[in-house]
Nucleic acid binder design. Structure first.
Lengths: 195, 195
DNA sequence: TTGATAATAGAACGAATGTTCTATATAGAA
DNA sequence: TTCTATATAGAACATTCGTTCTATTATCAA
């Protein structure tokens, strides 16, 4: 049996296209995607999605997804139910990129090696997002040069005294004698489980 | 003094527009963005970016960023230098969305509460990405219902015996008597530091 | 200076865009 | 059945798209 066209289904089709091509399909392309034979039918459904608040048009009349629609559901605390395919989720935001990377031009990713921040829950193999030009505050996690090597450390500041501390008791506190070389401040930690 | 147009600068301008509007600007819009007065000049620069491998055209002749260009640099191990603004970085990939979320239609985010997985480096307030329909394997982290509450646990499997284990010695091992309700498998952990 | 190259401007063009109209087909209620 | 609302098709349209051409200006080396 053939699938009926519903708002949800059309949304998924367009979202899939967007994720794959990083752009919206044209009406002509949607004729194929939605399996219809006329642009006016596409127009018909697009208007439905706009009315439903899933799509929107910007100033130039260009089509784009609402933040709501593009986000994957965020669940605060898991109760009896999980977000199902059909139901609307109250959850907020977000694209991972937007959520994690505030300043893309001065950020970079670093793969963690070593266990100097193990008690902070940062483990070997994790990715950290580092912001280069950021001014570290007391307690921030920074990338610092220690004995010619770069490692992750807490940045501590006490009465004009600056020192570095690992989140692992087996590493000593570092009190820099002269200059302290910092590579940036850690703004996020990412761990992916590979199955 | 006015800024000279360079490939890098044009790339940044277009990338900024893309990030903000989730789409490529048209040539007409780029006239304003690049501060020129003719579409042919835009055409001239776009071709430069294409030659440089920063932009590309898909089958329909649509403009899009190369994966290379869109990614933020990934540094394996930090050596003497950090990725600077101008230099090219060898690092691979990635958009966070693409990297983290393989199946957007069956994934959701969950904010972690409690300390049941603390020894795994998953802490209260972290976000975990959960894949709903995934079949858990031995050692995977799953969302499971225990005593009417949902928590994170290791999924263990030994000789047809299934049980749940916390990454925290203060929680006992769970050996389900009858049915075991699972909400999904954790595929990634995300922690953002708010400054 | 002169000469050569790179960069910019402007106009013209066919192709593709989204919109709008009329007409036909389908489905459910009365 | 008939009536009504919904869904689909097809064509026509003005607008915008990216391309291509010629011409002018800026840059820099010889």
């Amino acid at each position: 049996m053939k699938e009926k066209r519903t708002i949800k289904r059309v949304q998924k089709i367009i979202a899939a296209f967007f994720r794959e091509n990083r752009r919206m399909p044209s009406f002509a392309e949607m004729i194929g995607l939605l399996d219809v034979k006329s642009k006016s039918v596409v127009h018909f459904w697009i208007n439905k999605l706009i009315d439903a608040g899933i799509l929107a048009k910007d100033g130039q009349g260009r089509l784009s997804f609402t933040k709501q629609a593009f986000a994957i559901p965020l669940v605060g605390s898991v109760q009896a139910g999980f977000p199902s395919d059909e139901e609307e989720t109250v959850g907020d935001i977000l694209s991972m990129d937007e959520y994690l990377i505030t300043k893309p031009e001065s950020s970079f990713l670093l793969q963690v090696s070593g266990d100097s921040m193990i008690d902070e829950g940062i483990r070997e193999g994790d990715l950290v997002i580092v912001e280069r030009d950021k001014q570290p505050r007391n307690g921030d996690i920074v990338i610092a040069e220690v004995d010619g090597e770069w490692t992750l450390k807490y940045f501590r500041q006490q009465e004009n005294q600056v020192f570095l501390e690992a989140a692992n008791p087996k590493y000593p506190v570092i009190r820099p004698k002269k200059e302290l070389r910092l590579g940036g401040v850690v703004t996020a930690v990412i761990r992916k489980y590979h199955h």
